[in-house]
């Protein structure tokens, strides 16, 4: 989890990218590599101390920017934050979704207790499909400028990702 340091400027600007959600991952990576070539501390290995310090903090901000923006969820969250919308630790899903998540969790817990790897993998695949759908919802919500929709989708994604982590943990036990 990269956290914006108080002094850092806009992550999109830092990478020289437009502040929008639908960015090609390879474009973001290229921007990061290009900037790294200019800003990496190695390039200032023998420069005066003040300059080395400046290079270090710029490089740090650049790495944080990339870490934050390279994946859709981080990028969406960052855009939302910049729009003044925050997502708290105890955000509510709507009741229908709560039931859905609870049921999926119960199923996973049962499969885990029974050591049923095939079932866990099946649940994992189903949840991955759901995740892909949520990511596409995210894209649509951004396209429609639907901030509430973005926020709701990000909250669902948080639960989906937590669930997928549990699937991983369950499979690791095998």
């Amino acid at each position: 989890m990269a956290v914006e340091s108080p002094s850092s400027s806009n992550f999109f600007e830092l990478l020289g990218l437009p502040a929008r959600f639908d960015l090609d991952p390879s474009l973001i990576e290229r921007a990061f590599f290009d900037r790294s070539k200019e800003l990496h501390p190695d390039r200032f290995a023998s420069a005066p101390a003040a300059e080395r310090v400046a290079a270090l903090s710029r490089s740090r901000a650049l790495n944080d920017a990339y870490q934050t923006l390279k994946k859709p969820v981080g990028r969406a969250q960052y855009l939302l934050e910049r729009a003044g919308v925050t997502i708290g630790d105890n955000e509510r899903l709507d009741p229908a979704q709560i039931m859905e998540v609870l049921e999926a969790r119960e199923e996973l817990a049962e499969a885990r207790a029974a050591g049923n790897t095939a079932k866990i993998e099946q649940l994992q695949t189903a949840m991955r499909t759901k995740r892909a759908a949520a990511l596409s919802d995210l894209e649509k919500a951004f396209a429609a400028d639907d901030t509430a929709g973005v926020k709701a989708t990000l909250i669902s994604l948080r639960y989906i990702d937590r669930y997928l982590e549990e699937c991983d943990a369950a499979l690791d036990e095998e």
Partner: peptide, 13 residues
């Protein structure tokens, strides 16, 4: 800061 984070880096909480 999680392992495999590119350095230099920082985090605040």
């Amino acid at each position: 800061i999680h392992r495999n984070t590119t350095i230099p880096t920082g985090a605040t909480q």
